[in-house]
Design a protein around this nucleic acid. Structure first.
Lengths: 215, 215
DNA sequence: CAATATATTCAACGCTTGTTGAATTTACAA
DNA sequence: TTGTAAATTCAACAAGCGTTGAATATATTG
């Protein structure tokens, strides 16, 4: 008989829930869809994770730490490398975006689902205040501090609104809605994160300089 | 007794549904929440709009036409005004964004809800292909044509990805998640569409020029 | 006013939902 | 192997879901 490893079903529940939550949102998914997709009884998800809401949190938190930490490490590495001279704007933006590109390139299909889930959470007023606050706000604070060093004369408002635009452009990219595929007649692909990434950095860097003034 | 005008309850159902769908998404709203909020029986929504899905479509379509048409009129007005010389990049972007600013300024609280609903639809793979296609894709095609006139040497990919970033920045702004309020310690407000609008135009214009080359 | 069409409510249906306690199987340690 | 804990399934619950046909109220028309 197929002997299944310990914790395998538990992980499968998380994977299926991740995909379904990313695709249909929290309310668009039932516990039975998750359990059926994972090939387990509906009571098992409850045994491992508690209520549906806790399962949702578990799915979101699973990859959040890695993402936030990788970003932070990259930011710090750039800082020490730059010494006492401020690091370049492109470097700071890259610390924000590169971990997502790396995760995408890892080949793990779970990351693609997680990114869509992240986009869902970022653009939802309900989840944003709960999940983004706990998992990402702290790093974003440091990210914004780095930007303030680059643009010492810029107002807080200018910097925060510019960050907001970056965040929005990123969120729509992560959502992979397929709209750019349709509008471009197939010349661009939502799944082509590299194409999105390579243009996003010079795009938003130019935007920052236009709003926040010269370095 | 309070004599209610004809079609008043019908409109109230749309208003409440608009607010609830924008706040909680399609699956996060029940017909009973809508009918209770509107102060009518649950069967009335069904009588006026049919199934829940049709109510959702009715809510979305109600303001979509006005928005698409206003954008188009603005784009054409700029074109004829510019004569045979191509209109400026800022003008084209403004044709895309200004109608939303005007709607926001109208004071109608329904518009605020509709914008959050629009953000929800824009960032959802499911709804995007159904609702954006029917209501907005045609105008966006003309919008992109205008951009191609401004950047004749740019590739289709460059222009579409840049539009994608604008679309994302706009969507997150419309969503009004409250995140920028929290991150900025109250210095920026999600509800301050003017602040978002005034910076968004120079921001994305600079981004376009960085990616698509000089006019 | 009477007659008709529209608007609205009432009451209920079959089904699905999240959740749970008890029973059963599996894994692991002694 | 036996005993114990963890993992998993079974069966069922009360509540809420979208939807509907019939009944009633209101508005419109002749």
């Amino acid at each position: 008989m197929n002997k299944s490893k310990k914790g395998e079903k538990r992980e499968r529940i998380l994977d299926v829930a991740e995909e379904l939550f990313a695709l249909h949102g929290y309310d668009g998914v039932t516990m039975r869809q998750v359990s059926t997709g994972a090939g387990v009884d509906v009571a098992l998800a409850n045994y491992h994770f508690g209520k549906k809401l806790d399962l949702f949190y578990a799915v979101f938190n699973r990859r959040a730490d890695y993402l936030a930490n990788t970003r932070k490490e990259l930011l710090i590495a750039n800082q020490s490398e730059a010494g006492d001279t401020p690091q370049s704007l492109e470097q700071v933006i890259e610390a924000f975006l590169l971990p997502l590109k790396l995760a995408q390139e890892s080949g793990d299909p779970g990351w693609k689902n997680y990114m869509a889930l992240l986009a869902y959470v970022m653009t939802s007023a309900t989840w944003n205040s709960v999940l983004m606050k706990d998992n990402f706000d702290k790093f974003v604070g440091e990210f914004i501090d780095a930007l303030k060093l680059i643009f010492p004369k810029a107002s807080d408002q200018d910097i925060h609104w510019c960050y907001h635009y970056v965040s929005g452009a990123l969120a729509l990219t992560l959502a992979q809605t397929g709209r750019i595929d349709r509008l471009s007649g197939g010349k661009c692909l939502s799944s082509d994160f590299d194409a999105a990434y390579d243009r996003m950095i010079p795009f938003v860097a130019a935007g920052f300089r236009a709003i926040c003034g010269e370095e």
